[in-house]
Design a binder for these strands. Sequence first.
DNA 1: GGCAATTTTGCAATGGTTTGCAATTCCTGC
DNA 2: GCAGGAATTGCAAACCATTGCAAAATTGCC
Lengths: 350, 350
Amino acid sequence: MRPPERQEAEEERQPATMSQIARRLKVSESTVSRALAGSPLVKAETREKVEALARELGFSVNLNAQRLKRRRSQTIEVVIPVEEYGRQHMSDPFFLDMIGALADALTDAGYDMLLSKRTPWAVDAEGRPRPNPLLSGRADGVIIIGQGRDQSQLRAFAAQHRQVVVWGDPEVAGDYLLVGVDNRAGGRTATEHLLSRSRRRLAFLGDPKEPEISQRCEGYKDALRAAGMPVEADLIVPARFDAVYALETITAFLGKADPIDGIVAATDVIAMTAITALQQAGLSVPGDVAVTGYDDIHSARSASPPLTTITQRIAEGGQALVATLLGAIEGGPARSRVIEPELIVRVSSG
Amino acid sequence: MRPPERQEAEEERQPATMSQIARRLKVSESTVSRALAGSPLVKAETREKVEALARELGFSVNLNAQRLKRRRSQTIEVVIPVEEYGRQHMSDPFFLDMIGALADALTDAGYDMLLSKRTPWAVDAEGRPRPNPLLSGRADGVIIIGQGRDQSQLRAFAAQHRQVVVWGDPEVAGDYLLVGVDNRAGGRTATEHLLSRSRRRLAFLGDPKEPEISQRCEGYKDALRAAGMPVEADLIVPARFDAVYALETITAFLGKADPIDGIVAATDVIAMTAITALQQAGLSVPGDVAVTGYDDIHSARSASPPLTTITQRIAEGGQALVATLLGAIEGGPARSRVIEPELIVRVSSG
DNA sequence: GGCAATTTTGCAATGGTTTGCAATTCCTGC
DNA sequence: GCAGGAATTGCAAACCATTGCAAAATTGCC
């Protein structure tokens, strides 16, 4: 029915602008801007005409112009700094859960989420720093997941900017906004749980060079000492986050250490890896060895056996990170927030 | 030694601008702009002065102004559309692997990565569409992970824009740029592998409503038919992506079906969940039942038993997505790319 | 019909950077 | 000392939207 309209297939059509709409409607750009922003200053009839034409032209406001003018990007940069291990994969599902929680919370708040594996202060291959996300208008705020091994740069960066929130351990924190779990309490809770199940020789699996892990390890030691038991350095195994490497470490450990009957793992991934290693070594879980994890990642529930773990309430954590950050951006007196760890008892701990 | 400089702690310091630098150095803004951009038009001596002052002032170029002027955002939007399932968590580690691969590839190419769980055409709570990322200058290109159940909107969107690349199945693709694995071939390969291990009663676990899964299922059927074996509808179990739900489905299936000796799982997560269910049912893997997965997610290697799977070469896929998209943005004749699936034999398949 | 109060609209400046083109400065050689 | 060319620099116009303030249009009321 329609005549063939060849010219519709234009080359590289430029996006419509407000001034085009203004011209076609013989109104000013101001009116168009206000109409599309839903300002009560414009007559309803005018607004409708503007909206109709905008729809017809497929108009989308130019966000770069808008952000420039408003000095607001409505964007938050989320940093998962794995670069400390070189170009290693961020393989722990904890990150996926956290990213998902942050994406939801940010979307709800009307913010875009920029995801980066490099810290804002990281330099590129040529040694030049990338433009500061806060000063360059790239983002209105920054969420950093993890404090990292070297905290001096994080401290320096956070000292310059109010709009930064860190996920990490409260004990370790510097003078910056932080949301996180009391890892020491969590580590202690997990350990006490195993002790209450009459386990007597407990290993801790996790690399204490990471500040959060180190606190979990302190909690483990606390619980042992409180129970009047010795802390054996040999039983602290610096298993890495990465499951593949962790498997080797753990298997080697199982091979050379005196038998143990419990494992406090620093993360769920390490716990699940340890269970694999135990089963491969012919040991049953929780029969021979009871295991606790940490994080309550999504798959802990469906692991085999289902994993007893310390929940970090990741969804809640993500929301708290966003709420704290947005508070700081609004200029209010934002406060750090500590989320209480909670023991989730499933099968792996006997 | 330094006298106390109270005024350093200013309230809300505005970021430095090029015109400030220009004024202090008594040069024009053009010169500052060119100097910082490394243009050969400015004298080396001038450049150094500009760079020095920029460093001193902590100058970061205003990206919103730059992007407005350049009509380039150097940003790619990556969409993981899980909204089709409501606000469900994107729990499959496949996504994490893919996000990591894309983040690396985009960073290397000098692009920022915007991560969204909503498709560009999704409407918000009030029914208004969000500004089109391509028309609003929010992003120079869009990568969409997965084709989704309803492809009409994807087709419509991709038809409007050249700068869109989809991760998905080549067979199912519409007229848009796509990078993906031949899922049918992969499903077939996995099935043939189990048949070659003398397994005779194979179930397929995965929801064929998803286009990619559906192709894997077709491959499964192909292999059975090629081997002269019947395709039993009862043996195709629509297990969902999500491990927790999948566990119930699979357990129920194992309870009521005739015994099987092999499982072709549509994803690694489903495979690992199935293994859990099997073990809980007292069946050994691969002794009683051999299992293959799909994706080769990071943890497949360290699963118990290590999982035989079809690799999607996620890192390569991420690079290909980025390369294809950047090609399309540059305007060149970008081409879709099919990645060949490959069988990775580990322990779970016997 | 006329005046004041309201409602709507437009003007013009502003946000910070980039870039084509013209103007200036510098250098070389004669 | 000067022409001619190359190397630098500056001017000014974009890029597109927002917003304070003033101007215009409309309404209400006597």
